[in-house]
Structures are given as structure tokens and as C-alpha cells.
Design a protein around this nucleic acid. Structure first.
Length: 503
RNA sequence: GGGUUGUUAGCUCAGCUGGUAGAGCAGCGGACUCUUAAUCCGUAGGUCGACAGUUCGAAUCUGUCACAGCCCA
């Protein structure tokens, strides 16, 4: 805690319900330890269902199975001398049956004053109700944590988007779908990690605080290191450090972690977001495209069990080979007969076309850059099925290797799904002198006012001068991939605590 | 940044062309020994996002601001 934080202000939203619950807590304190931590939970709701749902009641009651469960009370049905409650743990829900016969008159009476949201621990034996629901006949019931605030409405849960983002804990308590999204998120990352580790990759961690922000075109967050009295930048990409590691002889490396970009917020952008970047020596961008297809397929299969994904009304088939098109090919494929070869390769014609479409472009761009602007204006959003766009112009790819047949373009691709960029990869530029020149071009652009242009990184050039083997490298936007696999319309739905303006 | 919609009880939502607020859930009290969003009876709970303005009178009309959702850049 710093002395600047002012989070000690008492909550302003006390109400009658909270006051009554505080009163109940006060009584608990008077009776002894109000927040005990000696209850031994041995069983999970989900595992109990998996193990015993198939059994008949006679079998369950014939040879009693003693279990102890704990969790948050989500439903409560008091009926005189027999009460039901549903508690929820990380694995699911299970019903409790509480009677004075099974426990004691005192326990039953105490239970009647428990509130939805309280954390309970219960011991007992399993049985099945008339309707066949696996239920715990409670012999012992304990209040483990008193909840002071009322939960959202038990049927609708929390529906207000803003509150779901600001108070994610409430969203997770009440909405099964939200829990599912973040469970899938964890599984996707684990699947990708296994995929690469299984291919001999080394997982590494490189700095998140950079003296020179590099590896992407974006505006950084800046901060200050007091002891060193120097400016530092939160990284916009780990790329240059990972390639230094390849220089060092770690020929297959990957890193999964946060990048930070000081830009606007949208349904596709959060200022901090998760990327995986991976680099493999003696490979090229074509290999990466094959590897990416395989990675997407294996990940979808292992997490979802299939490779056909429903996303916001679209059916995305990750099982089919991904289309691979140059920028010009994609424009022509998605607008048949509309743009001639001549039109797409003549600078003046491109500018006229962009003007007529009222599209954004840089007047200083060459043919390649203008083609890219036209692609972004007309075609990008039409790439619903997975599509690699290949051969990006060198002028917008300062870290990518030039094509041997055409030095104006690079051995680079971006992967689009549902009109969104999911991945960006290329054969790495390992010519130190070419890289130095490209950095200089970036510096000139920065001086000309382009805040997103790159800095000159002398140490990175020095590392290249020792020799970076021919290498292929790629970054995948993990949040956007998870949006796709969880049918989530906003990046905020797949980030546990998305950036919000202060309340 | 622009457009648009929203903000009413802890939650989910009503509230017509202005006459100082209503339901369900949750809560409290009561009934009920197989309920499933349990049911039934009773009861309490609100500076209607904030600030101005119009009006005898504003949750409602107007303006500004705040935050959010969606669309666009």
C-alpha cells in the first residue's frame, strides 16, 4: 500500500440487507470463531455427480458413502422441518438435504437463517431424491464464511455488462457461461503450451519493461525507474528479445505473456493483452503457416473436441486447409472483376481508387502500402474463414526478411478469421545491415511525426551482427483466439479484469 | 473522437401524452419433512446516475456532465 492510495473509504452502499447480515455475523463472532479454517473438504460436487449419478438410491443407501463438501449456497428451500440447499464449488453444484433428524434441531434452526451466498461446509451421506437427484443427507453443517452482500437475482444472475466486467467475481459466482469462457481460456493456453513443448520448444520469459520499446508499431506506456533514474516502457512486443535468444542458441523458444499498447479501447482492443510469440531456427514463413494450421486444429480438438466453431452466426471450419492469398489475390477473389491487375499495380490508379472509396491511406506510400490500404478497406472484413494473407510490402514490415524474388515484399503473412487479424508471422530478417537500414527508415518516419514508428535498437543490431540463423517467428493474439473459440463478441468477455474507466 | 441506446430497491425489470414510485427474486416474520427459480400469507426496503433549466408540480420534458452497451473512425 502506498500512502497515495485512498481505498480506505467506507463503502457508501450499505443497505438494510447488508445491515441484517452484519448483525448475523456479529452473533457468529459472539459464538466463537466466525471465520473457521479447520473444515476438511474432501469431495467435489462435479466428481460426486460423475461417480454416483448412475447409481440407484438403494445402492447408495445400502452401503452409505460418507462425503464432505463445501461451497457457496446458491439456492435455499426451507420447508418446515426438511430443507434443501444447493451449494456450488469450482466443479459444479450439489444439493444438500437438511433435517433435524439427520443433524440436530439447533443445526436446522441455524440453517434457516443462513443466506444465499454464504460459504458452507457439509458432511453426510449420499442418496437420491424422489426425482433422482444426487443429494447429500447432511449430518453436519457449518458456516465457513458469512457473506455480507446479497447475490444477484438467482434466476437471471448478473446481466449488466458493466457490472460483469467491474465485479467479475459476481459474474463468476452467478454465470456458468462466464466460468466456462475462462476455463476454456486456461485450457487453450495449456494446449498451445503443450503443442510447442511437445515439439522441443523452450518456454522463456523476457523483460516486460523495455528501455527501447520494439518489435511492433504501437505507442507504448512509459514509466520511470527511480534507482536507475531512467525511463522504461512497458513492452509492446517481446519479439526483439526472443530473437536475441535465438542468436544465443535457443533455437526454438516461445513466450506467452502480456503486451501493452497505449491505444484506444474497443471490442477488439484492451491496453494489455496476451500474445504468444514463438521462434524456430532453420524454418521459414511457409513452415509457420503449416504449423499454425496444425496448432489451431489441435487446440480446438483438445479443448472443444471438434474443429468446427460457431462464432456469432458464422460457422468457421478450422479443419479445412486455410486459404493462402497475396494481398492483390485476396482483393480480386473477394471482388471478382472489380479491380484489374493494372489498377492494382499502378500507384496513381490505386490512389484514385482509395480516394473514391474515401479510404484512409498514406500519400507517401508506394504501391505495396497502397494495396494494403485498399485490402484493409475492402477485403479484410470479408475474410471469415481462416485465410493467410501473404507477401506484405517491406515498407510496413521492418523486421521481416525480403523475398528473394522481389525485394519490395517480405516473406510474411497475417492470419485473418472472422475479419480479424489473429496472427502475424514471417521469415525473420537476419541481415544485420539491412535491419540497420530499416531501423533508420523507421527513425525518419518517427521524426516525421509517426508516433508508432520504431526506434533504432543498437543492441539488437549488435546481436544480429553475431549472426541470427535463418529463423521463422510468429505472434498469435491469444485473446482474439479465445474470443473465436468461446463465441465471445468482445475482448472484454475473455479478459478477467478488462480495463475500465474509474467508476 | 463521432453517432446511437441505456442508467429506477441488493439483483432482474415495469412505470402511457408531466400529478412527488411498482412487481418478481433476495431480506425480515409466519405455515409447510422430497424441494428444483419450491409454494402460500404478512412485512420492510428507493435523493428514480449527477447537476442545472422549463413548470404550480419532473423518474417522465430540455440542456450539460459521468459511466456503460452497440455501431462507425
Amino acid at each position: 500500500m502506498t500512502d497515495e492510495t485512498q481505498n480506505t473509504i467506507a463503502p457508501q452502499d450499505e443497505n438494510q440487507i447488508i445491515a441484517e447480515r452484519r448483525e448475523k455475523l456479529k452473533k457468529l463472532r459472539e459464538q466463537g470463531v466466525a471465520f473457521p479454517n479447520d473444515f476438511k473438504r474432501c469431495d467435489m460436487a462435479g466428481e460426486l455427480h460423475a461417480a454416483h449419478d448412475g447409481k440407484e438410491n438403494d445402492a447408495l443407501e445400502g452401503s452409505p458413502i460418507h462425503v464432505s463438501v463445501a461451497g457457496r449456497m446458491m439456492l435455499k428451500r426451507v420447508m418446515g422441518k426438511a430443507c434443501f440447499a444447493t451449494i456450488q464449488d469450482m466443479s459444479g453444484r450439489i444439493q444438500l438435504f437438511i433435517t433435524a433428524d439427520g443433524t440436530s434441531a439447533e443445526t436446522l434452526e441455524a440453517f434457516k437463517h443462513y443466506d444465499l451466498g454464504d460459504i458452507l461446509g457439509a458432511n453426510g451421506t449420499l442418496f437420491k431424491t424422489k426425482t433422482g437427484e444426487l443429494t447429500l443427507r447432511v449430518t453436519e453443517l457449518r458456516m465457513l464464511t458469512k457473506s455480507l452482500r446479497p447475490l444477484p437475482e438467482k434466476f437471471h444472475g448478473l446481466t449488466d455488462q458493466e457490472q460483469k466486467y467491474r465485479q467479475r467475481y459476481l459474474d463468476l459466482i452467478t454465470n456458468e457461461e462466464s466460468r466456462k469462457v475462462f476455463t476454456v481460456r486456461s485450457q487453450v493456453i495449456q494446449a498451445i503450451r503443450s503443442f510447442l513443448v511437445g515439439r522441443g520448444y523452450l518456454e522463456v520469459e523476457t523483460p516486460m519493461m523495455h528501455p527501447i520499446p520494439g518489435g511492433a508499431s504501437a505507442r507504448p506506456f512509459s514509466t520511470h525507474h527511480n534507482a536507475l533514474d531512467m525511463e522504461l516502457y512497458l513492452r509492446i512486443a517481446p519479439e526483439l528479445y526472443l530473437k536475441r535468444l535465438v542468436v544465443g542458441g535457443f533455437e526454438k523458444v516461445f513466450e506467452i505473456n502480456r503486451n501493452f499498447r497505449n491505444e484506444g479501447l474497443s471490442t477488439r482492443h484492451n491496453p494489455e493483452f496476451t500474445m504468444i510469440e514463438f521462434y524456430e531456427a532453420y524454418r521459414d514463413y511457409k513452415y509457420l503457416m503449416d504449423l499454425t494450421e496444425e496448432m489451431f486444429r489441435e487446440t480446438a480438438k483438445s479443448v472443444l473436441g471438434h474443429t468446427v466453431v460457431q462464432y456469432q452466426g458464422h460457422t468457421i471450419n478450422l479443419g479445412l486447409p486455410f486459404d493462402r492469398l497475396t494481398i492483390v489475390e485476396s482483393i480480386q477473389k473477394y471482388h471478382p472483376g472489380k479491380f484489374s491487375d493494372e489498377q492494382l499495380h499502378d500507384r496513381k490508379a490505386l490512389i484514385d481508387t482509395l480516394k473514391s472509396l474515401n479510404a484512409a491511406y498514406k500519400p507517401t506510400d508506394g504501391v505495396g502500402g497502397l494495396q494494403l490500404s485498399l485490402f484493409e478497406e475492402t477485403t479484410e472484413q470479408l475474410l471469415i474463414q481462416p485465410t493467410f494473407i501473404i507477401d506484405y510490402p517491406a515498407e510496413v514490415s521492418p523486421l521481416a526478411r525480403r523475398s528473394d524474388s522481389n525485394p519490395g515484399i517480405t516473406e510474411r503473412f497475417e492470419l485473418f478469421v472472422v475479419g480479424r487479424e489473429l496472427a502475424n508471422g514471417f521469415s525473420e530478417l537476419n541481415d544485420a545491415e539491412d535491419q540497420a537500414e530499416r531501423f533508420m527508415e523507421q527513425v525518419h518516419q518517427k521524426e516525421a511525426g509517426d508516433a508508432e514508428a520504431m526506434h533504432y535498437d543498437a543492441d539488437y543490431i549488435r546481436s544480429l551482427e553475431f549472426g541470427l540463423p535463418p529463423t521463422a517467428g510468429e505472434g498469435i493474439g491469444i485473446d482474439r483466439l479465445i474470443m473465436l473459440l468461446t463465441d465471445s463478441p468482445s475482448i472484454r468477455d475473455v479478459i478477467l479484469f478488462p480495463q475500465m474507466r474509474p467508476e
